[in-house]
């Protein structure tokens, strides 16, 4: 196993190199210029050109790439072309809200989806199954921003139970922290919970039709142990895969959710950097996101081996 993990980690190096080259080229070959945005709407061509030169954007592309990759190899992600703050600082400032949102969302989704999926499979064909899956289809089909606006209207504007926007770090108190995360986590988590519930149900249905489940029931085991100990454990591999893939879904959803709820996370940082053509920030965020994604996939593979003794690397 250790050898497998080491090999996979080493494999990330060429992957990250390819990502770096592709991201750099995509950004610099697409239209748009940060110098024009810095200069403002009413700038002259000379103003913009002066800023381009000061940012080094007038240099040949290959020279710009070598400068960037050289700094990157020394652990320097560069600085934002706009505010001159280091990219690493910007990312670390935004990391906590995004991690908090992703964790709470994932916990919420898993806590809701797996029991609902198991229940729907156990009661397959009954009204409980139809209701659960009906709600799942509705939740999966609803855009995240629409759910977000609906929750804000009801729970923030009408009932005034929760804040509309913003984020309070956990260090400033747990109450503020969770109050600011409830609505975003629900709006983002519902979509993922729906996907996970449907996957759990279908996987559980397959497992529940297996001979060993029939045997367990015939032995007189209670439904609880049959469902949890025998069925759910054997259905875990596809569910874990879905959770892993769901993190990619979550990354996309975080961008929307952070905008709707004004959470200063990585998603918003990315959107702002893209619209402003802040090249070093976009490059830094994408590289780190790619690295995290590779790690998640590695984590899923390791989880397979832990959950299923037949899988060995």
């Amino acid at each position: 196993m250790a050898g497998f993990i080491l090999r996979r980690i080493l494999m990330t190096i060429p992957v990250m190199l390819v990502v770096a080259i592709v991201v750099f080229l995509l950004l610099h070959l697409s239209p748009g210029d940060p110098a024009a945005i810095i200069a403002g709407d009413n700038a002259t061509t000379a103003d913009v050109e002066a800023i381009r030169i000061s940012l080094g954007l007038d240099k040949p592309l290959i020279e710009q790439f070598l400068l960037w990759i050289g700094a990157l190899l020394q652990g320097d992600f560069g600085v934002s072309v706009f505010n001159k703050v280091s990219v690493w600082t910007l990312i670390t400032q935004r990391m906590e809200p995004t991690l908090a949102l992703a964790t709470v969302t994932m916990s919420f989704a898993v806590c809701i989806a797996i029991p609902v999926g198991v229940l729907a499979a156990w009661k397959a064909g009954t009204w409980i199954d139809h209701l659960a899956m009906g709600i799942a289809v509705l939740a999966f089909s609803s855009p995240v921003f629409l759910i977000g606006y609906g929750l804000v209207f009801e729970f923030a504007r009408t009932l005034r139970w929760l804040p509309v926007q913003g984020y309070t770090p956990m260090a400033q108190g747990f109450t503020g922290f969770w109050q600011h995360l409830v609505l975003p986590a629900i709006s983002l988590g519902l979509v993922f919970a729906a996907l996970l519930a449907r996957m759990t149900r279908s996987t559980m249905l397959d497992v529940l039709n297996e001979d060993y489940i029939r045997t367990a029931r015939a032995k007189g085991l209670a439904p609880g142990p049959v469902l949890i100990r025998h069925a759910l454990k054997n259905a875990a591999v596809p569910i874990v895969t879905t959770i892993g893939l769901g993190i990619a879904l979550l990354i996309g959803g975080v961008v929307v959710t952070e905008s709707v709820f004004a959470i200063p996370g990585i998603g918003r940082l990315t959107i702002e950097a893209v619209t402003q053509r802040d090249y070093p920030v976009i490059q830094g965020v994408i590289l780190i996101a790619s690295f995290v994604y590779v790690l998640i996939n590695l984590g899923i593979d390791v989880a397979y081996a832990l959950l299923d003794p037949r899988i060995r690397y």
């Binding site: 804000v152 504007r157 005034r160 926007q165």
Partner: peptide, 18 residues
């Protein structure tokens, strides 16, 4: 100074006194 990119969210925050 708060930068709230979504105008609907800013409107709601204004309405609730946030």
């Amino acid at each position: 100074w708060l930068y709230i990119p979504d105008a609907n969210t800013a409107l709601s925050a204004m309405m609730t006194g946030e």
